[in-house]
Write a protein that binds this DNA or RNA. Sequence first.
DNA 1: GTCTATATCTTGATAGAC
DNA 2: GTCTATCAAGATATAGAC
Lengths: 210, 210
Amino acid sequence: MTEAHEAATGAQPTRAERRRRSEAAILKAATTVFAETGYDRTTIRAVAQRAGVDPALVMQHFASKERLFAAATEQTVPTDSLLDADIDGLSEAALDHAFAPFEDPELRAQAEALLRSSLTHPAALKVLRDDVMVPVQTRLAANLGDQDAALKAALLNASMLGVVTARYLLDIPALAEADIGDLRRLLLPALDALLETSDRDDPARPGGES
Amino acid sequence: MTEAHEAATGAQPTRAERRRRSEAAILKAATTVFAETGYDRTTIRAVAQRAGVDPALVMQHFASKERLFAAATEQTVPTDSLLDADIDGLSEAALDHAFAPFEDPELRAQAEALLRSSLTHPAALKVLRDDVMVPVQTRLAANLGDQDAALKAALLNASMLGVVTARYLLDIPALAEADIGDLRRLLLPALDALLETSDRDDPARPGGES
DNA sequence: GTCTATATCTTGATAGAC
DNA sequence: GTCTATCAAGATATAGAC
């Protein structure tokens, strides 16, 4: 039952429906404010104002600021498409995986809220590290093979973290204005070089077909 | 006049000397606390306790939390050694430049304080972007030459930001435990590949001496 | 020079009217 | 279900004793 449908039919939304909608409005507003200012500087009052509701209503729905933040940053980690990538397309898959949430209008605020708070809010740090970065690195490393796999995966992941942070959160001019195609074009060779088998590999298992 | 010297001679420190010392102690404590928890979660009380002085004394010396933070993160940008690097050693110079403050016990807390607060504290963001990253990128780009110079420099700089952030602030296991020599060994080829002249270069001015 | 005491403000959270 | 009113805690910053 959509709002437009109601307006056309004149039907009244049920109480449960009204409640669900105000909760969604609050959550959307909270995600935006968290994304803009981070956890600490975000106030319940500011969230309520943005959502057009009373501050007490925010507490009624989410019980605490901590749980509101958890709800606003939930599911930031998309279903990973890093498993089915062949080795050649691995860096490309990792690159796209890093940009995807920030280029998707639906996910952008969620991702930004989590990332912006990650350096100062312990709960956000834990989620980013344990639920996002480490799993991604594990899946990347699983596709690699050489003895430096874990470290290479971590470096690739951290580099991409730096790029999206600089572009979307720090607003570093050269990166914020850049075309995403140019970023891909320049980054891909570098990421490929990072993943390439290094000299120190086990001689019994010569690296790839170099 | 050192403390040890005074103890040996029994000389009394002057008032100005006592003041200078308590100010230094406060500044050191502030830098540490800012580095650990960021600007917002750092309280004047916590700084005073860490320094072993009264909270009011902190205000007496630095007037405001904002100015205390500015003093604690001042001079984070070291005199750049990126100008005299030849093109071949450029990525190596940039890499070392990124790690240096975090590997120097004297500078570590300063750098961490600035970086940790940069995503949530506007003043810290401005310093990191305008006084640290943009100048570094400008100097890197000046040594490059091709038409993507600015973007390549920005990407290299942002990647290193991500690596040091993941290693020193987020404590991503694979990176935090890694030997810095391994990080250099794996990163250098990737950074070199990033700076390499790309295919799209102006045909009238073939890139470097490749 | 240093500290006690406190003013002033803002926060998250709660209680109760309607 | 929503809002008014308010609490308790903690923050920066100040004033003044010593």
